[in-house]
Structure formats: C-alpha cells, structure tokens
Design a protein around this nucleic acid. Structure first.
Length: 811
RNA sequence: GCCGCGGUGGCGGAAUUGGUAGACGCGUUGGACUUAAAAUCCAAUGAUAUUUUUUAUCGUGGGAGUUCGAUUCUCCCCCGCGGCACCA
C-alpha cells in the first residue's frame, strides 16, 4: 500500500464535516477554549501559500485542546467591506457584492482542502445586513455617549481612492491601499473619540502579559503619551497670549523665542500688528501646499518667518523674546505652539543656528566636563535660572510648576500622539452610517428598530471625488422622513471604514444567529475572552487598537464582561517567495496552496509550514523542503501499514523517546514552537523506523502506537485519522483523549557527559545517572585519552555538573 | 534619529536560570538498485591542517571583559529586519 494523500484527505474532510466534529458547543462541564484567527479579507487573487500559516497554527492548537477535553470555539468568517474589494470590483466592472461573494467561495474552498477544524455553522460576514446591523448599533451607542461627532478639521485625503483616511491608514504619508501621496482636505466627516480611551488603552497594556512585547511597544508608541505643562506666554503688544506645551519646564530660562505652527489661529487675529504680514502670509501659503510627507522629509532643513512687531514675555525671567512661525511645529499636537530652547532641543538648535538666535545653556549634566557648544537634551542641574539654579531638573520642574499654578499661568497636561479616529469614507462599499440629517432637527440617529440601514444595491458606485459619497446620488435611498418631526430629511451618505466590522466580530461568533442582541449575556460570559488570538503584526496599531477601543466601550455600556478582548496574542511571520521577496503577482513568485496540496497533500503542507522555522519569524518558501515533509509522513504511513500485524518486543529506549516526545509536543504547541515539535516527531519516527527494519517487531505497545498518532494528529490530521482507523479505532482520533506520558520514562539511566581539561573538551564518557562525582572521577582516570592530558599535571580544581559536564583545572 | 527584534555550516534552523555548538530538515558527495533516469535505500557532510582510522587547531557579525567554562552575561562597534518619526 502506498500513501495516497489525496484520497485520504478527501475522505476524512467529508467524514468530519458529516459527523459535525467541529461544532462548538457550550458545555458547562468543560472548560472553554476560544482560539481565533484574524478573519481574511477575500481578495480576488485567492490565498497564497503563506496566508494559511497562522490558520495552521491555530488549527493545531484547536485540535490539541479538543483532545485535551476543552470545549473549543474555533470559528471563521470574512471581513469583506472596504476599499480593496471595491477597487477590485471597479476594475473588473462588477458589483462589489457579486465579486465579494465569488471571492469568499474561492477562499472557503481553499480553507477546506487544508483540513481546518472551523465551525462553519458560526460563519460571519461583515457585509451581511444581519451582521452590520450590530456594527451600526454600536455606532449609535457611541453617538449617544458623545463618542461619535462630526468635524470639519482638515484630514488625510487620498486623491486616487477619493476618500478621507485615518492616520492608521497611512504608510509613510501615503495611502496604505494605493500608495498615492495623501493630501490635506477639509471636509465634513464623522470622527470617533478614541482619545477619550487613550489612557485606558495604554494602561491596560500592562495587563496583557501574554502578548508579545514588540506589539505592546508598538501600541505604546502609537498612543504616545507624554506628560508636561501648558504655559501661558503674554504678548507684549496685545492682550492675547500664547499657550505652549512642554515636557521640559526646567529649561525655560533657556527659552529664546516662541514658535507657532503656520496654522495657529492667533496669527490671523494678530495680523494687524504683524509688520511683515505679506511675508508671513506667503510662508503660510507655501506650507499649505506642502504635503505632510514633504514637510517632514528633510527634517534638518528648518524654515520659518519672524513675526516682526510682536514679542512675548517669559513668565519666569520676564525677558522679551521674539515670536516665529515655522512648520517644524505641528498644529495637531499639543497647543500648536512651543517655547524654543535651542541649547536643549535638537530642532530648536538647528533653527536657532540658521536664524542666529540666542543659545542659552541652563542645564548642565552631572559630569564635570561637558561641551558647551553642543545640544544637551538630558537632565541635570540648572544654572543661570534665577532662584532655581543648582536644582536638579526634576525638582526644578516641580517648583516651577507650583509657581505657574500660583500665578495662574500654567497647569499640568497629558498629551497623546493618538488622534481621534476619522470614521467616515466617501465610498460605496461599507456600512452606511445610521444617521439622518433633518433641516429642523439637525442630526438625528436612526431609531434602533429601523436597523439595519441597508446598503442599496446600485449600478453606479464609482467614487465622486467631491467629498461626497456615491450614495448621495441615489435619491430613493437618501430621501427619508425625519424620525423626529416626520418632515423630509436626508440620510447620511458616508460609509464606515474597512476596520469597523472587525472591531467586534470575535463577539458575534459566540452567538452568531442572535437577532435580538449583539451577543447574549450568557454566551458572552461563557466564551469570553478570546484565549488565543493569532494574526499579522501589521495590525498592531490598526485593528488591534480599534478593537480594544470598541471592546472597552462595550464594557462601559454593559455589553461585555471582560476589560480586554484578547487574552493572548501572537503574530505570525510572513512566508516570502522562493526569491526572498514578498509573494506577489508582480514578482511572479506566488505559490498556490491548491497546487501544493494536490502534489504533496494538505498534511505535508501543514507540517512543512510549521517546520520552516520559528512561527513568529519571516521565512522563505522552498518547495523542495516541502517534499521532505511529505517523505516524513510517507515514512509514518509505511511503518503503520507494513508492520501493522507484527509482534511486539518492547524496547525501553524507544518507549522513553515516545514519552519524552508526548511531553515535548504538549509544551511546544502552547509555546508556538512548532518547528521543534515537528523535529521531535521526526526523531521519533526515525527511531521507530530503524528499529522495525532491524528487528521486524514493534518496540512499543499498542497504546503507545496510538499515542504516537495522537500527538501527530494536530499537525497532520488526515493521515493520523486514517492510520488510527487502521488500528481498529471506531471513534475519530479527535474525540480520543490526549495521551498521558509516564514520568518515570522521561529520564535516562545512562548519559554521555563531556570531560573538559582547562575548559577545553577532551573526551566524552558514559556515566550512570546514579554516579557520584567520585565514581565519575574514577572513570576519568581510567580513560586513555584523558590520561594524556592529566599526566604529570597538578589538579587544581574539579567542577562536576551532574549529567552535563566535568571540568578539570590543571597546572 | 528613537523604539523593538535579530546576526550560528552551502541553505532553513536547533541548543541560552552560562555546561558536550550545529539536533531535525533541505542540499551536496559517494555507494546500492536500474539498460538508463526518477524514486527509494545505505553512508558521509562546519573549516583548516594531517598519513588513513587518528589527532590537533580554529569556529556562533567584529572587538574587549567577567568565568574553571560564554552562541548564552556586561561594555563598545558593525550589519539586517520591523515599527515610529520635527510629538516639543
């Protein structure tokens, strides 16, 4: 008999589906385990061989937990709204609904042939009205709590996608989807007040001790908390004043000028008093023309204009200082104005050098020798700072703040880099925002009973580029009567961004068919939180922040019971093409999983993907290595079929290896060390194979032969099930109980240890686990090679690490 | 520039409360089988030197240090990847 992977895999996939093996059931007697993948975005290209890597890992964990007696929830669905799906549809001249459905079909098929244990009865699609009804419902709750508001602030605008974008949608100042340079544009938009949750989003990261540190760091940086002081600077020539934000109040005696961002509202107000107004105006204009990218690109090349005729008063030194406008100060952060301290800030230093401004050193480092001609950004002791001189930075800040508070010229302030979430898109393919605009009542939320606000099926859904959504043109949909006053009113035509649906989908799986609630309290309590979440690291500062934000909001309004949605998160490393580049049609290096499954089988593909290297690391695809995985499985297949009826002659060495492997597999899977888990299965297989060939009988008993298949089963489910049945088992291997290893079989009686002389390995000797240092020393003295190294030498010291090494120091 | 991760044979990688570096796999080489090839099986495979079995020296990005002993710890430097980036 030979290993016919195609036949075996097809047979068991059907069998498992028919026998409802994967239906997750709430079972109060069992402990629950919720293992989740980031659901895919079904693009037109289908899956390439790298995509399933994370799914394979979660499937392995899911199957292990199943066998360990957990009630497992392992669902899957599709995140199908958004720009890529819409752009794909426009390009191929079909309705996005049609193309999305088609793409999902392809994806499902591809996932099925890989043998994943998803409970498809819980499948969700973000584009399904029964689903987005609740996405809209959450939006309404946010609106009611004042967390969704309209704004006309300038936002990022992609000229190609013709829509506004959130900061999270940008990559290096470009649209993350189409790579176009993003512009600033002022249009009416809906914004979610994520900044209200900034503090909690940051603080609760400390609770996520089962997340990777790298991801937590990314989120911390993205939130970007900084604690400082807002100081009020009076303007000498006017009653107006300027607020600046600084974290280094201790350097204020070194402040030699103020800088306002070009967008600062005060400039307009003071225009009459600015002597060089035309020059100022021109500079502001030139800044407006620059994109964000241009503004930040040459960050060593500072530009600015002095506002002549105006000066500010330093509240501490009472000194008169000039005021500048310069685009190195951002309007979107802090107060949009800073106090410049060239001696202790790199940017101010560059600016001051260019415009010949005073550089006053007021903080000196602890060391005696320091160079007074360079910038010093660290802390230290103050000098030339009035009565604060000689104080340390930290102490000075406290005393100075007390002074400011007393004079009502300043207060503590915490700032975040995180901005509110620009939540509307001027596009068709998204959840309609459930709002009605009425001339007399203003903004009126759609009553909950009228949800979902269905996205109309239309012929023309091309983006308009006018800042209006294409929905604007569909009169029959737009024109409604106001829910409050019944007079004619219009629907909000902007749609939600791609990320909306994925903010809460993990909750819906718990109770996917519920038409009364988003999720029932009871089911939410049982399944929450997600125990293990696996997905791409690129979502660290997008989906993973958004979802945490929504979850916390849902917690606040009593919908969920946990503060954090995902208990453990691990990111999956990409699989690169054989040429080392990202798999892409552009490079022609895409490997299709369907072809690989046909040739080598799903089991081989699964084993290989896990064996490639550390799960979180980037790996390069290699089809020849995949064949190695195939050979490994074939070897197992041959062992179990060719030697099925052979007698047993137990061998303790092989048995020990088996029990060690059971333990290793258990531990490695939970730690995501799949590569070493597979390796240990290979070692065991080789050992078994060699023994059977040599002795023509089994070194392990039947239970142990079963156990071997059980520990292989999460990795290669089909072949394991087939061979399991071959051992006469009637029930599925995944309904069997995970084998227990025997502790007494984990340690070896005899071990080889290294013997070193002066730290250099000179020989290896066998010792018994019961041997004392004295016994080992005796063996060393009998060893011929070692005699050579020890003869005529004086032994100064002996170091014995039991079972490991013996080091002899000689003179 | 800042933050995070990493650098080990021809290749993917294994081994870190400091204790025999290179597990496992790929590839390569030699052999068996075959008319031949593929597949399969057996053996070898870090480098250098040496007369073969031998044995010695070197070897985990580079340099220093701690230690009986360093891939692992400390300091300095170089390179790669990812994230952030004029955030005051």
């Amino acid at each position: 008999m030979s290993y016919k992977h195609l036949k075996i895999e097809k047979k068991w996939q059907k069998n498992w589906q028919d026998s409802n093996l994967y239906l997750s059931q709430k079972d109060k007697k069992k402990e629950k385990y919720y293992i989740l993948d980031m659901f895919p975005y079904p693009s037109g290209d289908g899956l390439h061989v790298g995509h399933p890597k994370g799914y394979i890992a979660s499937d392995i964990i899911s199957r292990l937990k199943m066998m360990q007696g957990y009630s497992v929830l392992h669902p899957m669905g599709f995140d199908a709204f958004g720009l890529p799906a819409e752009n794909y549809a426009i390009k191929n001249k079909v309705n996005p609904k049609t193309s999305t459905e088609k793409n999902i079909k392809v994806y499902k098929k591809q996932l099925e042939i890989l043998g994943f244990s998803y409970d498809w009865s819980r499948e969700i699609r973000t584009t399904d009205p029964d689903y987005y009804k609740w996405t809209q419902w959450i939006f309404l709750q946010m609106y009611k709590k004042g967390l969704a508001y309209q704004s006309n602030e300038p936002i990022n605008w992609c000229p190609d996608c013709k829509t506004g974008l959130a900061n999270e949608d940008l990559e290096d100042g470009r649209c993350e989807r189409c790579n176009s340079l993003v512009e600033k544009k002022s249009i009416r938009q809906w914004v979610l007040k994520i900044t209200d949750y900034a503090e909690r989003l940051l603080k609760d990261l400390d609770k996520l001790n089962q997340w990777e540190e790298a991801i937590l760091e990314m989120q911390r940086n993205w939130i970007g908390r900084s604690h400082g002081v807002v100081i009020n600077f009076k303007i000498k020539e006017d009653s107006e004043s300027v607020d600046v934000f600084t974290t280094r109040l201790d350097t204020i005696y070194g402040c030699s000028y103020l800088v306002l961002s070009p967008e600062h509202p005060l400039i307009e107000k003071l225009s009459a008093k600015i002597d060089n107004w035309s020059e100022t105006e021109e500079y502001i204009k030139s800044c407006q023309q620059k994109s964000d990218l241009e503004r930040t690109k040459n960050n060593n090349e500072k530009t600015g204009v002095k506002l002549t005729g105006l000066s500010a008063i330093n509240p501490f030194s009472k000194e008169e200082i000039p005021i500048f406008i310069a685009d190195y100060v951002l309007s979107s952060y802090g107060t949009g104005a800073v106090m410049a301290v060239p001696a202790h800030d790199e940017r101010d230093f560059q600016f001051a050098q260019k415009y010949n401004l005073a550089i006053k050193y007021v903080v000196r480092p602890d060391e005696k020798n320091y160079d007074d001609s360079l910038v010093y950004t660290g802390e230290g002791y103050l000098k030339d700072s009035g009565k604060y001189s000689k104080l340390h930075s930290k102490e000075a800040r406290e005393k100075m703040l007390a002074f400011l508070k007393q004079k009502k010229l300043g207060k503590e302030k915490v700032n975040y880099k995180l901005n509110d979430w620009v939540f509307s898109r001027q596009r068709y393919w998204g959840e309609p925002i459930p709002i009605i605009h009425c001339k007399s009542c203003g903004v009126v939320p759609v009553p909950e009973k009228d949800l979902p606000v269905k996205l109309p099926i239309v012929k023309n859904y091309q983006p308009t580029g006018t800042g209006q959504s294409p929905l604007e043109k569909i009169d029959s949909w737009v024109n409604v009567s106001c829910p409050k006053c019944q007079k004619p009113a219009k629907r909000e035509t902007n749609t939600m961004p791609q990320w909306a649906g994925s903010c809460w989908y993990y909750l819906r799986y718990m109770d996917s068919k519920n038409d009364k609630e988003l999720v029932s309290k009871e089911k939410e309590k049982y399944w929450s939180p997600v125990d293990f979440y696996i997905g791409g690291a690129e979502h660290a500062t997008r989906h993973l922040i958004y979802a945490r934000f929504w979850h916390k909001f849902l917690y606040d309004i009593g919908v969920v019971s946990e503060l954090e949605p995902f208990k453990k998160f691990r990111s999956v490393g990409l699989i690169m093409g054989e040429d080392g580049r990202k798999m892409s049609k552009r490079w022609g290096n895409v490997v299709n999983p369907d072809d690989m499954v046909k040739k080598y089988g799903a089991d081989s593909l699964r084993v290989y993907a896990m064996f490639m290297g550390p799960f979180e690391q980037v790996n390069t695809w290699n089809s020849r290595s995949l064949n190695g995985a195939y050979k490994f499985l074939e070897k197992i297949f041959n062992i179990y079929t060719n030697y099925n009826n052979k007698k047993e002659k137990l061998d303790i060495k092989v048995q020990k290896q088996l029990h060690k492997t059971i333990k290793k597999i258990e531990n490695d899977i939970v730690d995501l060390k799949f590569n070493t888990a597979v390796s240990s299965l290979m070692i065991l297989t080789n050992l078994l194979n060699d023994y059977l060939k040599k002795h023509d009988c089994w070194p392990i008993n039947k239970d142990e032969r079963k156990a071997f298949l059980q520990i292989l089963a999460p990795f290669a489910p089909h072949i394991s099930e087939e061979l399991w049945q071959g051992l006469g088992q009637k029930k599925s291997i995944f309904r069997s109980t995970w084998p227990k290893y025997k502790k007494e079989l984990l340690s070896d009686q005899e071990v080889e240890i290294g013997v070193q002389v002066n730290g250099k390995l000179r020989a290896r000797i066998l010792v018994n686990s019961t041997d004392k240092e004295k016994d080992v020393w005796e063996k060393i003295n009998q060893n011929e090679t070692l005699k050579k190294w020890l003869e005529g030498k004086e032994v100064v010291k002996k170091i014995y690490v039991p079972q490991k090494i013996f080091n002899i120091v000689v003179k």
